[in-house]
């Protein structure tokens, strides 16, 4: 195979992947009302965005939800990974299987099953139902990230700590957690992003009391074009990019 053919091909596909995003960013600074032709540089859509109180509220709601969902799923996910890694117990395979099913099953299946559960137990749809749902779909990703770190982890390290006089708890605090910290941070960031991005599950389990950003965007873009969405999308893009670079940086640094 000659060298330029694969390179040209790669470049072409990357271009196709990024053109829509570039268009979005460029149009977010467009002064035109119609959203199709160029009307000069302007920040009016950013202004409109921040003057829209419902929108700002949805942003805060989403941020808070993503923060709490990522944190809770990181805690539970890390504990699960530790239990799977350290302990032998009955039903380990079942536990693993359930996590795998959550990760692989179509989001919509998870969404309706959770909706059915929340209605059955009479849970008011809102922040709590969103949190439970988001933690559930983030959980397997955190578990996998932490497990990957633990699998490269020397089994003897916890024993060495115990041998030198550390109790189980002290060992966890001084050895286990510092060693898996990069994975915890990466898992947290992944959970944060997944939660911030989710449309499918949230559509089913959110209520009018707690409007979140993706659903607000969804209701805006279903009909016609809304230039504010360009501005919002650009902001989200920058935000995700920062988060992604942060997580990559953490993972790369820990490998050295």
């Amino acid at each position: 195979m000659s060298r330029w053919l694969p390179r040209t091909y790669l470049t072409l596909i990357y271009l196709l992947l990024y053109v829509p995003i570039l268009v979005l960013v460029v149009f977010s600074f467009n002064d035109s009302r119609t959203g199709y032709e160029w009307g000069g540089l302007s920040l009016r859509w950013y202004e409109a965005l921040f003057n829209n109180r419902a929108m700002v509220q949805a942003m805060w709601n989403s941020l808070w939800l993503a923060l709490s969902a990522a944190t809770v799923s990181t805690i539970i996910g890390a504990l699960t990974a530790l239990a799977l890694h350290r302990y032998r117990f009955r039903g380990k395979k079942v536990l693993n299987g359930m996590l795998f099913i959550v990760m692989m099953s179509p989001e919509i299946v998870l969404a309706i099953s959770l909706l059915a559960l929340f209605l059955l137990v009479g849970l008011q749809l809102g922040y709590v139902s969103l949190l439970l749902a988001h933690v559930t779909f983030c959980l397997p990703f955190v578990v996998i990230t932490v497990m990957a770190r633990l699998s490269g982890f020397d089994e003897r390290l916890p024993e060495a700590a115990r041998d030198l006089g550390a109790s189980d708890f002290t060992m966890t605090r001084t050895v286990l957690i510092p060693v898996i910290m990069p994975a915890l941070l990466a898992g947290w960031l992944l959970g944060f992003t997944l939660s911030l991005d989710d449309v499918v599950v949230s559509t089913f389990v959110s209520g009018p009391s707690y409007e979140i950003l993706p659903l607000r965007i969804y209701s805006m873009v279903r009909v016609g074009l809304k230039p504010e969405v360009n501005a919002l999308g650009t902001l989200l893009l920058v935000f995700s990019l920062v988060m992604l670079m942060l997580s990559q940086w953490i993972l790369l640094r820990s490998k050295r």
Binding site: L17, Y18, P20, I21, V23, L24, T193, L196, D197, V199, P214, I217, Y218, V221, V229, L232, G233, L236, L237, S240, L241, M243, L244
Partner: peptide, 12 residues
């Protein structure tokens, strides 16, 4: 792109 809001990308 995977880390970027999929609704926003669909809208683009």
């Amino acid at each position: 792109p995977f880390w970027t809001n999929s609704l926003v990308r669909t809208y683009a």
